[in-house]
């Protein structure tokens, strides 16, 4: 059983950020669910990247394109060899979402600050309300999107028909179809409730501690490999509602546990629950534990 994370370099501590936040080779990036949270206090050197207004295309339902990603990085003073450290609210959901987009366009060195905003704040570390700092513009060159980490619906359907592993990381009520969305979250327009048949229900929240940090390699191994029998060599697709919580689980499986083949299905339930004629299952599968 693993004693350390498979890719420990993908995770940094709040202390590491404290020690490196002024390093010109390091760019700290805050990514939150609430756009204005950054304005109410952020790590002094951090820039903001927003999941809606920066990372999504405003017209097509898709991420921003390669050229816009390159422009965004250049504007934020991120070069191809910059060490990018993402952090944010909500247990780093949006930080993982941003991390995934950086990997989609081939950024080499991206890391997540373990514990996110919550831990940084709890430790009484500095947060400032200054305007977003400006850094010298870089000449970023983005790679073509990496198909190895993103799943589209046709592939998910084939994957499902072939009985390959799918991980549904939403809450149990969303999985069973009792609810169309998380408690307290908006219903983002799915016409059917339930899950993709065959998907294992492993809510993302099982991977984190109360202080917002990730659970230990040993605990994660127990959760995913032992209790849910996810095989390391299997091709795995994770999904949630709009792709943010599944970015979190994708990060855990790929970087903390070292599963080589994990994709995020960002279309997730808001796509699947609206597709005509695709199979849907409700309730808990027979034989599944509570």
């Amino acid at each position: 059983m693993a004693r350390d994370y498979a890719h420990p370099e993908a995770l940094v501590s709040t202390q590491w950020v404290e020690d490196h936040r002024r390093d010109p080779k390091v760019r700290i990036v805050e990514s939150d669910e609430d756009l204005l949270l950054y304005d109410t206090g952020h790590i002094p050197e951090a820039v903001r990247i927003d999941w809606v207004t920066d990372l999504q295309d405003a017209v097509v339902r898709d991420y921003l394109g390669r050229e816009r990603f390159a422009r965004l990085c250049s504007e934020k003073g991120i070069a191809n060899d910059t060490t990018v450290v993402v952090y944010g609210d909500k247990n780093n959901w949006w930080a993982c979402y941003a991390f995934w987009v950086f990997k989609l366009y081939g950024h080499d060195d991206v890391r997540v600050m373990n514990g996110g905003r919550k831990l940084w704040e709890a430790e009484g570390r500095p947060l400032v309300r200054d305007p977003e700092p400006k850094y010298p513009s870089a000449n970023y060159v983005a790679k073509e999107p990496d198909p190895a980490i993103r799943a589209f619906r046709d592939e998910v359907l084939k994957h499902q028909k072939a009985g390959r592993p799918l991980v549904d990381v939403r809450s149990t009520d969303e999985y069973t179809g009792a609810k169309l969305h998380m408690a307290d979250y908006p219903q983002e327009g799915a016409l059917r409730g339930g899950h993709i048949p065959g998907a294992a229900s492993i809510p993302w929240s099982k991977a984190v501690n109360d202080d917002g940090t990730f659970k230990s390699a040993r605990e994660l191994e127990k959760l995913y490999a032992k209790e849910n029998k996810l095989k390391r060599r299997g091709r795995i697709i994770a999904y949630c509602r709009i792709g943010e919580r599944s970015s979190h689980t994708w990060f855990v499986l790929k970087y903390l546990l070292g599963y080589p083949n994990v994709k995020n299905y960002d279309g997730s339930w808001t796509e699947w629950g609206n597709l005509v004629g695709v199979p849907i299952e409700k309730g808990m599968p027979a034989g599944a534990g509570a």
Binding site: L35, D50, V52, T53, Q56, A58, P186, Q187, E188, I242
Partner: peptide
């Protein structure tokens, strides 16, 4: 435009 459509529902509510 500045917040994005995804954030409108909670505000409408």
């Amino acid at each position: 435009d500045v917040l994005g459509m995804m954030r409108m529902r909670g505000l409408h509510a």
